[in-house]
Amino acid sequence: MGRHVLIVDDDRDFRRTAGMLLAGRGYHVVGQVGTVAAARLALDELRPDALLLDVNLPDGDGISLAEELEGSHPGLRVLLTSNDATLERRQYVAKTDLVATDLVPYLG
């Protein structure tokens, strides 16, 4: 009985790969969305425990959304991802490093 994770990324291929990765690690992917707006809706509908959140989204940026959710959804785990290997943030892992990373510290 793993954690419920919502994948927020505008790239369909990534969502599928990440879904396989998370499922393989025992997480339950409750949904996949491609925009900030869809993420807000899905958060209320699906009530995930954690987000795998892309930094660059068509209608906004993941970093701002993450900061916002810290206030509005205390306890919600967020792992930021992007193609960029250089972003220095506490809850961030570059997409290329995701497979090799232990996700538990981030997603619980």
Partner: peptide, 21 residues
């Protein structure tokens, strides 16, 4: 580049990593 080729390659890397594991 970021949304296209790089995204594709990133996904390729991830898929290969999954396969490798």
């Amino acid at each position: 580049l970021h949304d296209g080729a790089q995204q594709r390659l990133v996904n390729t890397v991830m898929t290969l990593q999954l396969a490798q594991s």
